[in-house]
Design a protein around this nucleic acid. Structure first.
Lengths: 327, 327
DNA sequence: TTGTATGCGTTATCAC
DNA sequence: GTGATAACGCATACAA
C-alpha cells in the first residue's frame, strides 16, 4: 500500500479510503486506482481482519469422523445451499473437513483463532470439542441437524420421527401386512429417530424381528440388511429403508431373490436423493430439503453475525412424501 | 494476551515465548499456563499471521462451474487424500467452492488476501481468474489434472489418453467386433483425452458413428448415450463408457433392451469408483488413484511452501486396469 | 477533501 | 530468563 500511495502521490489514508469507499476527490481516486493496477496491489486480509475484527469468512464443518462427504448425498446439497446465501452476503464459505482427531483439534484452533466470523456445523453433538469451542467463544453459529443434547443452540433440521412415521403409515395403507425396516446409523439421532417413527406408525403390529440394523447409510449395507430381513421373514411385503441408498441396496437384493417391486413387496426410502430416481422402479420416499437446510442455516449465521438475537428454538423444515412406483 | 500476562505477573513477551517454545523458567511457565486456562485465552490468528506472514492454511479449490462436488466421485477422495498429508504437516485445509462467477471473484480475493499459504486446485484452465492470480502472486500451488494449456505449472494427474487406449485394447481383445464409446465432457481434457485414446486403440476400425457424446459424467446421460448407440448400431457388442457412472447408466439401458452383459455386449468404465462394484455385473474399469492424486498435490504444495523449487514437469500417476465381469 | 497518528494482537530483536 | 519495543498492514478518529 505504501507503494501505491507514493505512486499516486497521496497518503496511505487516502488509499485506504478509496478501497473502503470514503470521501475522496475524483482526481485522487483515479490516480490511486491507476497506481493500484500498476503495482498490482492486493489488500492484506490478515491486517484488515486484525483491525476490523472480522474476516468476512464463515466456516462450514461436517463434524463426522471419517468425513461422510463421500457417503451422504445430502452434504453436498447442504453446502451448496449454504454457499448460495453466504455468497449473496459477500461472505466466503470455507469448509473444514475433520477426518481425524488431529483434524478436529486443528479445526477448533482455526475457529477460535479468529479466521472466521461464524460457522455452520453439520451433525454435531453437545460434547464435541467443536461445539464446546463454539459455545465458549460465543461464535455465531448454526447447526444442521438436532441431536437431543443440542437444545438451546440455534439449529435447523427436519423431524425425522414424524417423517418416518408418515411414510410408514402410507406404506401400510397400500395394504402391506408384514412390514420391516432396514435401520441405519442408530448411533445418530437421524437413525434412531427414524426407527422411533417407524415403530410409532406400526403400533401393536411392530415386530422387533423385522428390524435389520446396519451401521451406515450405505448401498451395500442396505443389500445386506434386506438379505437378513428375507431370512427371518420370507413373507415380508413392505420395507422402510432408512435412506434411499439403503433402499437401492434392498432393491438389488429383492431382485436377486426374485421378488417383484412393488407387486410382491413395497419399498420406501428416505432423502429423495439422486438414488431415488436412479432406482428401478423409482423410489417412493421422504423429501429432505437439503439445499434449504443449508440456506436456512446460512441465513441464521448471517443474522447472528449482524448482531441478531439467537432464536429461542430450532427451525424444523417440511418433509413432504413423494410417492413414486416402489410402493 | 494482556490479561494473561497480568494475571501471571509477567510481560507479554514471556507469554508469547511459552506459546511458541522459547526459553522460560518453569515457574513462569506454570503461572502462565494457569493464567491461560483461567482467562480462557486463545491466540489471535489474524495478528499472528500478520507478523509471521503465514497462516498455516492451504486452500483446496475445485474450479468447476456449479461444483461437481455432487457429481464426481473422485473429488471427495482427492480432498481426503490431500487433507491427510496437509494435516500431517499441521496445515489446515480450507476448501473453497466456486458455484458462480461471483464465487470465483471472491475466492481470488481470498487467495490473494493472504488467508492461505498455498493452494491445491482441481480442474483449472490457464485462462481462469484463479489460475491467473496464483501465477501472478507466485502463490505456492499444485494443480490436479493437466489441461494442455497448463504446462509449466506444477501438477499431478493421470494419462487419460493412454489409460483409455489400454482399456479399449483389452476390451477388443475379448473378441468384440463392433465397439463404441459413450464420450462425456469433451470440453474437458479428461473427456477429450479419453476419446483420443479410444480412437487410437481402434485405429482403422474406428467408426465415428459409434461415438455417442454426452455433456457430463452422469448416470442418466450414460443411459441416454447407450440408447443412441443401440439405435445406430443394434449389433454393437462392446462399449467404453467415459466413466463408471456413465457405464452404470449404459448397463441400465442394456438391461432394459434385453441385452446380456457381458455375453451380448462387453462394457468397460473409467474411475474404479464405488459405482464399479455397485453395478450388476461389476465393472471392468480403469483404476484412478484419486486419494493419491490428492496426496501428491498436497506434498507438492507443502514442499513449495517450505521453499522447494517447483518441479520442471508434472507428475503422472499409474492407472492400472481392473478387470471384473462386465467385459 | 486529505494527511497524521494511533491501535488492532502477535512475534522478534534487543538490551537488561 | 525476562521485559520493553519495534514492526506487520491496515482502518479510522482527528486535525488540518
Amino acid at each position: 500500500m505504501h507503494d501505491v500511495a507514493r505512486a499516486a502521490g497521496v497518503s496511505r489514508g487516502t488509499v485506504s479510503r478509496v478501497l473502503n469507499g470514503g470521501y475522496v476527490s475524483p482526481a485522487a481516486r483515479d490516480a490511486i486506482q491507476a497506481a493500484i493496477a500498476h503495482v498490482g496491489y492486493v489488500p492484506n486480509n490478515a491486517a484488515r481482519s486484525l483491525v476490523m475484527q472480522r474476516t468476512k469468512a464463515v466456516g462450514f464443518i461436517v463434524h463426522e469422523p471419517h468425513a461422510l462427504f463421500l457417503e451422504d448425498p445430502n452434504i453436498g446439497s447442504i453446502m451448496l445451499g449454504a454457499n448460495a446465501v453466504l455468497s449473496e452476503a459477500d461472505l466466503q464459505m470455507v469448509s473444514l473437513v475433520t477426518d481425524s482427531d488431529r483434524d478436529i483439534e486443528r479445526v477448533t484452533r482455526y475457529l477460535s483463532g479468529g479466521f472466521v466470523d461464524g460457522a455452520i456445523i453439520v451433525s454435531a453433538r453437545a460434547q464435541d470439542p467443536i461445539t464446546k469451542v463454539v459455545t465458549k467463544l460465543g461464535l455465531p453459529a448454526a447447526f444442521v441437524g438436532h441431536p437431543p443434547d443440542l437444545r438451546g443452540l440455534p439449529f435447523v433440521g427436519i423431524d425425522n420421527v414424524r417423517s418416518a412415521r408418515e411414510i410408514t403409515e402410507r406404506l401400510v395403507a397400500t395394504g402391506r401386512r408384514r412390514v420391516g425396516m432396514i435401520a441405519a446409523a442408530l448411533d445418530r439421532d437421524s437413525g434412531s429417530d427414524r426407527l422411533t417413527g417407524f415403530r410409532a406408525a406400526l403400533g401393536d403390529a411392530f415386530d422387533p424381528a423385522l428390524v435389520a440394523e446396519i451401521p451406515l447409510y450405505e448401498f451395500s449395507a442396505g443389500a445386506e440388511g434386506m438379505r437378513r430381513l428375507l431370512d427371518v421373514a420370507p413373507d415380508i411385503d413392505g420395507v422402510f429403508a432408512a435412506s434411499d441408498a439403503v433402499a437401492a441396496g434392498a432393491l438389488r437384493t429383492l431382485r436377486e431373490a426374485g421378488r417383484r417391486v412393488p407387486e410382491d413387496v413395497g419399498v420406501v426410502g428416505f432423502d429423495d436423493s439422486s438414488w431415488a430416481l436412479r432406482c428401478q422402479p423409482p423410489l417412493s420416499t421422504v423429501h429432505q430439503p437439503a439445499p434449504l437446510l443449508g440456506q436456512r442455516a446460512a441465513e441464521l449465521v448471517v443474522a447472528l453475525i449482524a448482531g441478531a438475537e439467537p432464536p429461542r428454538e430450532g427451525i424444523l423444515l417440511d418433509t413432504p412424501l413423494v410417492w413414486r412406483e416402489s410402493a
